[in-house]
Amino acid sequence: MTDENGDIAGSSALEATGLGRKYRRGWALRDVAFRLPAGCVCALVGPNGSGKSTLLSLAADLLAPTTGILRIFGHAPSAPEARARIAFVAQDKPLYPRFTVADTLRLGRELNPRWDQRAAERVVAEADVPLAARVGSLSGGQRTCVALALALGKRAELLLLDEPMSDQDPLRRRRMMGALMAEAAEHGTTVVISTHVLAELDGVCDHLLLIGDGRIRLAGESDAIQSAHRLITGARDGLDPGAGGHTVVERRTTGRQLTALVRSATAPVGDGWIVREPSLEDVLLGYLRSPDAPPLITAGARASSRDVVR
């Protein structure tokens, strides 16, 4: 996908350098640096209060950063070029309760030049939400569908979804996610979905961004992150999981057995260990349980130092 600025596929949808945001109670985000390539579907994972919503609000220009910069397709979030290219669904799905669903979609049409009414109506129809219903009378899950319809109808190139599925039943969650991913794949849309339940996004995301305590813990392609780790099990005594210079992310003992998550690209760690590839969830849990483990940012997710537009 190209546009008037000559951005091409393979460029960054979202790029942060030295990004920080401080509230009165302290830093919500600090020294955040990463890039997301255009076209990826990224899970933004982290415990509650870790800074996920702050990061998304910064990208949506609802907050101004305290330090550093954030670029959306090379533009500052406050630039009109950025605003037209993002769609944001906030965690509490703010909508006008007195508007009907049809009014809400009309709002999208009136305020967005690239509006796709059919795509928006499809999402609403799939969730069996009547167009004449007042938004205030809808259930939480139905409101989420309307908010998603509004975001998809905007035909944005970057979708920022803050815990979009948290109030959906599993069946509808699966259906909505399917519809979302089909739309994204068809139009090459970059999607960032925040969640604190990774299982929600199992098999959907090709990129991962783990935030803990306002800092990036993991960033990059899911595959690369997963294959950069090994889960090793052995006897508790006499073995050092860090032998050979491997970074130990987490170690746990159960009985006389020691299980450790180590960062190791290739080599077996040593004799006496049972080595296997961890699931992505194993990796995430390991990092979440060990706040001091050093972060991992893959080559593809490192913020480039090249000059960005504006």
Binding site: L62, R83, R114
Partner: peptide, 9 residues
């Protein structure tokens, strides 16, 4: 709702 209107085009 400002987060709704301020993130339109």
């Amino acid at each position: 709702t400002y987060r709704l209107v301020w993130t339109q085009s």
